[in-house]
Design a protein around this nucleic acid. Structure first.
Lengths: 344, 344
DNA sequence: TGTTAGCACTCTTTTATCTTGAGTGCTAAT
DNA sequence: ATTAGCACTCAAGATAAAAGAGTGCTAACA
């Protein structure tokens, strides 16, 4: 079911206009603003066709048309202009990253704020997934009887810690020895392979501590994954700027959805193996996001994907700009994060 | 300027009513609901007096009265009923903490969510201030040329890390040796005294590395303080429940204020040396919180204050309940956190 | 056959007007 | 000092009318 050139042009004009105005666009206004040379009657006919094909909807008779999810999908797939950011905007963006030296997670958290500020949408940044990172240090620090803190440090300059139960008769010296063994044996191993390696190499030694070892491995695994608390969310309030959220109840629902970290987390996790994703309206599985679009991108260092970040906005978001911004941030992140990382 | 018994009774009734209804209360309704035995005319006279004294305000003639900040202040100082939580609520609260074993920060972060859920206001929890904690482990992990990650672990089971510049000629062995020295010399020292101690004990040895040492000390100091990213905020959206935020613009302003972490951070920091604080309306320095009240409390372990947490709500918040909940959470936190801490 | 001008019709939005009702302040009586 | 009574005020709700934006359809035109 191909759309001819004219239909495409009209559809595009409608979407562009609607992204700007958020109110149904009529045949007349589109003719002027997009400089289309057909009469409004012709345009009206085409609009009726486009509606029949499911690209447009009418809130009520005698109102203009608004684009459907299907229309946005077409728009995103075929009509993006891929405009790069302006010099100014790039400068602004770079400026944010110039003096960032306080660690990867800190950079990423502020990235969320930067993103939300320059797009005026809601931004999400996942902390790095350490699976592809390399272990640099492992330490068990005794806390109280039966408990210790396990700390890992990777080559990406990220530390992760968690409390772990230890056998009550395990001495601090034993813990220290174990820490050194693990650090030595697994130095520079990818986090995803550390567990395996440990079982093979020291499983036998620690046979008597079987339970502890398996708890430890599990904990290592957990730490290297990006947990639920590792999602930075910023600018949720920005949604209140847009007329679609003038209704306090809608706003409440939206905020409830994004504050529900675990669902956002799952969503981002799912997007994490894609370089770039755009999910429009009802394409979102999340109940509360079905009037929203989500655009995600991957940040990488030395071509190693580390994590995912993205933007949530109303379905009529400015896709062109959002994509440009994400690409700009992607580049900046690659550059900044690189300074924490060594070549393979 | 003392208020007589009757005025107090009436004022209290008005406040109680207004907390419930959020709409101006009139002389008649107050008479019924609070079972006051004076005629509405008498009550009206008293209300006029109370208004003249600054305790009440009238949105417009022919509307009821609403309490002023001054009234809430009086209410909070003299009229709280100090009702404990019900058995049910206590049970619910305890339930949240029953299975929490994944570390102090995690407990605290979820505390923010629990608080916001059971009060239906906005909750803030500051991560622990480590100044009074004792050092358990210190580690410098080399990352790339000129950079290392510094990690501290304290007896409270908290790890903090940050990237630090190191002299380019410093070898991994040197870093490791330094880490051990610091851990050994300062083991079980309060974080607030570690810097001092280091200068005294190894300042001489490291004279050649003067710059590095001072950077290190600074970093230690920073890490032991609660930074701006160490504020967990939850339930901001709850404010949309209340009619005072039915106006989308007000809601936006509020959300902007609390998302501005650093100001919230400063506010909490200021409250951190008080066991309990209640700040009402314009008493708040924060521009955007002048229609809100903030109630904070300290969480402690073994009588050692660790940090601050609190509630932000509209000035007409249910002070009694908020205070009860904060006390309940305070106790639960003390109990749960204790399991991570050793006696002095 | 595709395009367009014209026009009647639809339905939301805006504006104006009226009504209702909760609540007050004041006065006069108790 | 207290209270019943009453005129008055003002926001909020209801109703009605007018305006305006946009459509679909028909008939004329190239």
């Amino acid at each position: 079911m191909e759309l001819d050139q004219r239909k495409l042009q009209i559809l595009r004009a409608i979407i562009d206009e609607y992204i700007l105005s958020a109110s149904p666009v009529g045949s007349k206004s589109i003719r002027q603003s997009a400089d289309l040379n057909w009469s409004s009657a012709t345009i009206r006919n085409e609009m009726a066709d486009l509606e029949a094909l499911g690209y447009l909807a009418q809130p009520h008779t005698s109102a203009g048309r608004i684009p459907s999810d299907k229309a946005y999908r077409l728009y995103v797939n075929q009509m993006l202009s891929h405009a790069a950011l302006s010099q100014e905007e790039l400068k602004l963006l770079n400026g944010y990253y110039r003096n960032r030296i306080d660690g990867i997670e800190s950079v990423l958290r502020s990235t969320a704020h930067v993103l939300s500020e320059i797009t005026h949408y809601t931004a999400i940044v996942m902390m790095p997934d350490l699976a592809t990172n390399r272990l640099r240090h492992f330490q068990l620090v005794p806390l109280t009887e039966g408990k210790a803190l396990s700390v890992i440090v990777t080559d990406a300059g990220v530390a992760r810690d968690s409390v772990i139960d230890i056998p009550p008769d395990m001495t601090p010296d034993e813990l220290e020895a174990l820490s050194r063994t693990i650090t030595r044996r697994c130095y520079n191993c990818r986090m995803s392979t550390v567990g395996e390696k440990l079982i093979k190499e020291i499983g036998a030694e620690l046979k008597s501590r079987g339970d502890f070892l398996s708890a430890l491995l599990e904990r290592l695994d957990e730490s290297s994954q990006t947990g639920m608390n590792m999602v930075e969310l910023a600018g949720a309030r920005n949604m209140l700027r847009y007329p679609e959220y003038n209704d306090v109840n809608k706003a409440k629902t939206f905020l409830a959805t994004v504050e529900q970290r675990d669902s956002i987390y799952r969503m981002m996790k799912k997007a994490s193996n894609m370089e770039f994703t755009i999910t429009i309206g009802r394409e979102n599985e999340q109940e509360g996001l079905q009037d929203c679009s989500v655009v995600t991108a991957t940040y990488r260092v030395n071509d190693m994907p580390l994590g995912t970040f993205g933007i949530i906005g109303p379905t009529r978001m400015d896709y062109n700009r959002v994509i440009s911004v994400l690409q700009g941030v992607q580049q900046n992140l690659a550059y900044v994060l690189q300074s924490y990382l060594k070549e393979d």
